[in-house]
Design a binder for these strands. Structure first.
Length: 686
DNA sequence: TCAATCCGTATC
DNA sequence: ATACGGATTGAC
């Protein structure tokens, strides 16, 4: 009974007791009671559980020991979810280990609850989370949120799926599919080898089928595979290819947009070892595939691989970390080549897997660059309204006689807001090279980044003083092309409405980069519009990214021998467009790599950004124990977030930089200082 | 001299 | 978030 302890509140005048005081008193009593609680009966064997608690504070990112009550003994297995009392709160945690004795000097608190006995955090993924957190200067709890999907109790209780018939494992079919490159690699997968390759896919290659064959070969050696692709459409394509190669039911899809139940069901199938082949988007990089033999990533330059949640890990880096740790095979593939992939080749960490030059030439479409000169536009007013030079217009018309034509047009958001109305050079700020825009129609243009007004703007290229907003947008382009070719259907694919594929009938398909549908039998013609605008994007990797988008679109064309043509509207002298014409992603990546090296940019150097209020960023930077050779750039205004400071170190000091950042974050978290957002190797700097 | 309060630190 | 320990303050 509580009668004797309750008399105090009744003696107080009700109005004099503040609610907060009462609540505090109640909590104190509860705390006192829990302290006196009789000691729990511990599990007879290994009575201590090491638990990673779900607290996003850097200085608490280590396992804490709890006593396992005898009642929970069976459920508290390594990798299982538990609830624990931590610093006066109930928090979630993962058991990483059961041990006999703790080295904690104080008394251990008992586990509060075992959520379930399902070991959702495998030792490999626990280790991976630790390495990824260290690499990105984040916490394990943040990484674990990305790695382990939320539990769905109903799904967890459902019986496991019946194992289907044995998968088809046709190594000769796999070797044949990979023959144009070098079938030794795929044969090595099949015999338990772990080659690491950077694979340049041939133009028009059926890459989903090649990934499926690679997974089949790996499965033949008794090992599982993890295939990461940029988006859901690609998951669907690889899904179909895997079904065709292995038969149904031998692989699962892991995508974030599948819904909680489906996502957890697929995760459990992997975690329980029922599914050995996984295809998915960036969330799948952490999938606990049993006996992992191969990690693969397709088109690793796609910005969808940059995780938007802390600590912002990149899918490629997660997979490479995993491959390094688990000694499995690696396939980094694409039509384009990122400088990061090139770096793997240059350092000898991975081998290059490409087809001979003659095979590339035979598979590639015929590529031409055509500039929309003023004379040309003056001769042909229709071309002006459609931003199409005569030759591009003719290529479309010719292509439409043989099949579908793809027109790639940059997305609105990727474009500078204003450009010279004579030579189309984007208008940039003299102070910081940011893009100019018109804040209000009546006011002079100003910089979108630093706000400097430019009332006296003159084009840096041609001296012209007229500005215009570029006519862009895929919807608008579709209308224009539709008027020019009234006899053929015009499809549009972008943003919310993305088409997966189109048939072989003549049609115009207008798409934004990354949203291009696959055409049955390939496009007769692919037109790349506004290449100068894409190249004008203010970004670290503008040229690399532009070439990637053009190669990805151009790879959907038929080979030149079957009439496939690509027309890029732009400056024929441009280096990036020339790499497209030569279909030379690796040569381009080599030059990019050299430039990054001399400019001290990733991957030759490692960068980190600190974003927050100016005073906080300054104090955080001052607290950093930076390795030798570190440089601080900035701070510069970073929009509503405050300021951004860039820290740059030689690549060899990357580990030291991450450790310094972790240490600094730990001290700041412990002192409850305002948060400073830390990003290691951000994909973009704005 | 002791209790009430503040502040920094650990959180198992 | 909360709880604890040690330092600091203030009333007797």
């Amino acid at each position: 009974m509580t009668g004797t302890g309750d008399d105090e509140p009744q003696l107080e005048l009700p109005g004099l007791v503040r609610a907060r005081d009462t609540a505090r008193a109640v909590r104190k009593q509860a705390a006192a009671r829990s302290k006196q609680a009789k000691p729990v009966d511990p599990a007879p064997e290994l009575p201590v559980a090491r638990v990673l608690v779900d607290v996003p504070l850097a200085h608490l990112d280590k396992p804490f020991d709890y006593l396992v009550p005898r009642k929970l003994d069976a459920d508290v297995v390594p990798g299982s979810r538990v609830k624990v009392r931590f610093a006066g709160q109930d928090v979630d945690g993962f058991v990483v280990e059961r041990i006999a004795e703790s080295d904690h000097p104080g008394r251990l608190t008992p586990l509060r609850r075992a959520v379930s006995a399902e070991p959702v955090l495998s030792p490999e993924v626990a280790r991976l989370s630790e390495l990824v957190a260290a690499r990105y200067a984040g916490t394990r709890s943040d990484v674990l949120r990305l790695a382990v999907p939320p539990r769905h109790a109903t799904v967890e209780k459902q019986p496991t799926a019946p194992t289907p018939d044995s998968p088809r494992l046709d190594i000769e079919a796999a070797a044949h599919a990979w023959q144009p490159y070098d079938d030794a690699t795929v044969r090595a997968f099949a015999t338990g080898g772990s080659p690491r390759v950077v694979w340049s896919a041939l133009p028009a290659a059926d890459w989903p089928a090649l990934l499926a064959h690679a997974a089949a070969a790996t499965l033949a050696s008794g090992r599982g595979s993890l295939l990461c692709v940029p988006d859901h459409r690609d998951v669907t394509r690889v899904d179909e290819a895997l079904t065709a190669v292995l038969g149904a039911g031998h692989h699962v899809l892991l995508t974030a947009d599948a819904g909680p139940a489906a996502r957890y069901r697929a995760f459990l199938a992997v975690s329980r070892g029922e599914a050995r082949v996984v295809v998915g988007t960036r969330a799948a990089a952490f999938a606990p595939v049993h006996d992992l033999g191969l990690v693969a990533i397709w088109d690793d330059g796609d910005d969808l691989y940059a995780e938007p949640r802390a600590p912002y890990p990149h899918t490629r880096e997660v997979l490479l970390t995993r491959a390094h740790e688990q000694s499995c095979a690696v396939l980094v593939g694409g039509f384009a080549r990122t400088v990061e992939a090139e770096y793997l080749v240059r350092t000898g960490w991975a081998a290059e897997l490409s087809a001979p030059r003659t095979t590339v030439r035979a598979a590639a479409p015929q590529v031409a660059v055509t500039g929309a000169t003023d004379q040309e536009l003056a001769r042909d007013p229709r071309a002006r309204s459609a931003r199409l030079p005569r030759s591009a217009f003719e290529a479309i018309r010719a292509g439409l006689e043989h099949g579908p034509v793809l027109i790639q047009t940059p997305r609105q958001g990727y474009l500078p807001s204003l450009a010279c109305d004579r030579c189309r050079t984007p208008a940039t700020c003299r102070a910081c090279r940011g893009p100019l825009h018109l804040p209000k129609p009546s006011e002079p243009p100003e910089c979108r980044w630093c706000g400097t007004p430019e009332p006296q703007w003159a084009c840096g290229e041609c001296g012209n003083r007229g500005l215009r907003a570029p006519v862009v947008g895929e919807r608008r382009t579709a209308e224009e092309i539709g008027r020019a070719f009234p006899a053929v259907p015009v499809h549009s694919s972008s943003g919310e409405r993305v088409l997966a594929r189109v048939d072989a009938k003549p049609a115009v398909v207008v798409a934004t980069p990354g949203a291009e549908p696959v055409a049955d039998g390939g496009y007769a013609c692919v037109v790349l519009l506004d290449t100068w605008l894409m190249l004008a994007r203010p970004d670290l990797r503008t040229a690399e990214e532009s070439l990637r988008r053009w190669l990805d679109a151009a790879a959907l064309a038929r080979p030149g021998g079957r009439g496939g043509r690509v027309v890029a509207v732009g400056d024929p002298a441009d280096q990036t467009l020339q790499a497209l014409v030569r279909w030379d992603p690796s040569g381009f990546a080599q030059r990019e790599m050299a430039e990054r090296q001399s400019a001290h940019l990733p991957p030759a150097s490692r960068l980190a950004t600190l974003v927050g209020a100016e005073a906080d960023v300054q104090s955080a930077a001052a607290a950093l124990e930076l390795p030798d050779g570190a440089e601080l750039l900035g701070p510069v205004p970073a929009g509503d977030d405050g300021v951004r400071l860039v820290v740059r170190v030689p690549r060899a000091s990357g580990g030291a930089l991450s450790r310094a950042l972790v240490e600094m974050q730990g001290v700041r978290d412990a002192k409850k200082l305002p948060a400073v957002r830390v990003q290691v190797d951000p994909v973009a700097l704005d």
